[in-house]
Design a binder for these strands. Structure first.
Length: 607
DNA sequence: CAGGGCATCT
DNA sequence: AGATGCC
């Protein structure tokens, strides 16, 4: 028997050994864009309001919905059903982003992992918080807040009913705080996994919340008609499933995993079947800074190189602003384009990427800048990548170009970490030029960079809220690093702060973290980027490697030996095991069957 | 249709 | 690198 049952598993009727131990809340802001506009201009509250992008209504307030103004409706059609519809242009997403980040910050004050999904949705894993509450109050007689999908028919021996009721109280507090602080009404779904939390969330709309108990997971899922309504089943999978006559969630529940394995990877087959039954063990991953920052521009057609260059130049200018706001130093750049192709209507993008020298980016007065020469260097890299993608001896026709920075230098900020130690000597920091991905474990309760007290005072007139600086990645050491010039190594102490790969905001953060006495576990572990170690980038060639037995080439031996013994030891240990032992990926699929030949535009389930 | 921007998996 | 998915 599975020993999960000893702890938190339940075994009752057709739910033999599922794990109910987690408590997940999904929070969804009601008609998000419309609410942002209504908060900005309260007069809009009492009138039917539509948010317009191009020629469509992307969302509407509930006043407008009374008239039948729906999402994704053409503006002309909307006026037909609601002649006095008030329109607000929503093409500039800046205000929405700001508001979205504020909600995210509010949710973080509960000190649980928060995962942002788009602008208006968040998952919160409150499992630990619930456990703590249970310990201190020991009261299993808790009232449910909000609605339930269905009352439970029996007690679950694992205690999940109590935990979910406590979760519903927490969800209610969260929604209240979002409303009190930011004036947004929200919906919430409470369940023992992300799938059910998300799907049950809109069950009582708007401005309400719904809890679903594990025993109703499977039956609830079967009320969803189309397999498409399961998150992670997109158009492609839907098409494949339908070609096999698997159309409803019920169909999927009844099909055997073996049949699914004929069309999907083994992992996916198992996962799909699980999802159809309301099972989902994917963790809530703390959202941090993005792993890439990019922009793209689509257009009818571009066939001239100089035009392409202009497009990229414009994109680069905009992108550099975003990167400056982000604060991290990019080390890799990707160029994407889409060729005009009659066969493939859309998508089919191609891309090439290469490293960029971090020295292009200069930190002065705490903000990232790139000199004219630096920008020219970037343009050179971009056009070189472009040449890899396009044979200029032949005509070309593009419909999209894109630019993205995809890897960043990061600094480890854990208390007691090497970097933290090094912060005491800024010159040493610059010499080592540490490049790693920072962070704490996703299940850790440590989000000290965002304090709850500061978040209670947010209001919409504030400047843009910076999202959590945390990344749900553990410490990773990357082999390729910037080499140092002789001058830099020779007199590290002469370096000006402005030249350091560290801005003032981050220094501030580091000192905050130092003050925070809570311990962090910064256990190194498998690097997801380990494959990139073999990257050989053309433009890094100038970096001649100096060999050193104990330490990597990017660290000057002299500087290294000048460090305290303890630190040398710590560094050596990490160099020995740069990325931990890679977790081998589960074996690739043996049976990947050809795609179905059915051409399915949309699947519209019958009621 | 509307598509931009990000993550994840292979 | 590319495909797929999500909002």
């Amino acid at each position: 028997m599975d020993d999960r049952n000893m702890e938190s598993g339940c075994s009752h009727y057709n739910d033999v050994e599922s794990d109910h131990s987690k408590c997940i809340i999904h929070v969804d802001i009601d008609c998000f864009y419309a609410q942002v506009e209504m908060v900005r201009n309260p007069e809009l509250r009492s009138v039917p309001l539509g948010i317009q992008q191009k020629n469509i209504i992307v969302t509407s307030n509930y006043e407008a919905r009374k008239y039948g103004v729906q999402k994704c409706m053409l503006v002309t059609d909307a006026f037909k059903v609601c002649p006095n519809l008030k329109l607000v242009n929503g093409e500039d997403l800046h205000n929405y982003r700001t508001a979205s980040n504020k909600v995210f910050v509010v949710l973080q004050s509960w000190k649980c992992p928060v995962e942002k999904l788009g602008m208006d949705e968040n998952f919160i894993d409150v499992t630990n918080l619930v456990q703590e509450k249970l310990k201190t109050t020991n009261n299993t007689n808790v009232n449910l807040a909000g609605q339930t999908y269905k009352e439970p028919s029996m007690d679950c021996p694992c205690g999940c009913h109590t935990r979910l009721r406590i979760s519903s109280q927490i969800a209610s507090e969260m929604r209240k705080k979002i409303y009190d602080d930011l004036s947004f009404t929200t919906c919430a779904g409470i369940a023992h996994n992300k799938l059910l939390a998300k799907l049950i969330c809109p069950y009582n709309k708007p401005n309400n919340q719904t809890t679903i108990y594990p025993e109703h997971g499977t039956s609830f899922m079967s009320t969803l008609q189309s397999v498409r309504s399961i998150p992670s089943i997109g158009p492609k999978m839907t098409e494949t499933l339908i070609s096999q006559n698997i159309i409803t969630v019920s169909d999927l529940q009844e099909v055997s995993v073996d049949v699914l394995k004929k069309h999907f990877s083994s992992d996916m087959a198992v996962r799909l079947k699980g999802l159809s039954l309301g099972e989902d063990n994917t963790p809530v991953k703390q959202t941090g800074k993005p792993q890439s920052i990019g922009l793209e521009d689509s257009f009818k057609i571009v066939s001239v190189k100089s035009e392409v260059e202009d497009k990229f130049s414009a994109l680069l200018q905009r992108l550099l602003v975003l990167v400056r706001e982000d604060g991290r130093i990019p080390v890799s750049l990707r160029v994407t384009l889409r060729k005009k192709d009659a066969k493939r209507l859309s998508s089919h993008r191609e891309s090439r990427q290469s490293q960029v020298s971090p020295s292009i980016f200069i930190l002065s007065n705490g903000s990232l800048t790139v000199t004219e020469a630096g920008q020219q260097k970037l343009m050179n890299i971009i056009m070189r990548l472009f040449n890899k993608l396009i044979d200029l001896s032949k005509p070309f026709h593009l419909t999209l170009v894109g630019l993205a920075f995809t890897k960043f230098q990061e600094r480890m900020t854990g208390r007691g970490s090497i970097v933290n130690y090094l912060m005491n000597d800024i010159s040493v920091q610059s010499v080592l030029n540490l490049q790693n991905e920072c962070d704490t474990s996703a299940t850790s309760m440590d989000y000290s960079a965002v304090s709850p007290s500061s978040s209670t005072t947010t209001d919409l007139s504030d400047a843009e809220v910076e999202p959590s600086p945390k990344k749900p990645k553990k410490v990773t050491w990357i082999a390729k690093r910037r080499c140092l010039s002789k001058e830099e190594v020779a007199s590290p102490s002469k370096l000006k702060v402005g030249e350091l790969r560290l801005n003032s905001k981050e220094l501030e953060k580091v000192s905050e973290l130092r003050l925070n006495s809570r311990d962090r576990s910064l256990t190194p572990r498998a690097s997801p980027a380990k494959d990139n170690m073999s990257d050989t980038s053309d433009n890094m060639k100038e970096c001649e490697e100096r060999n050193c037995d104990d330490c990597p080439s990017y660290v000057d031996k002299e500087v290294f030996s000048a460090l305290p013994d303890e630190m040398q030891k710590e560094l050596k240990a990490m160099w020995k095991n740069p990325s931990g032992s890679g977790v081998p990926r589960s074996s690739p699929r043996t049976t990947n069957k050809p795609k179905p030949n059915t051409i399915m535009k949309y699947f519209v389930p019958h009621k």
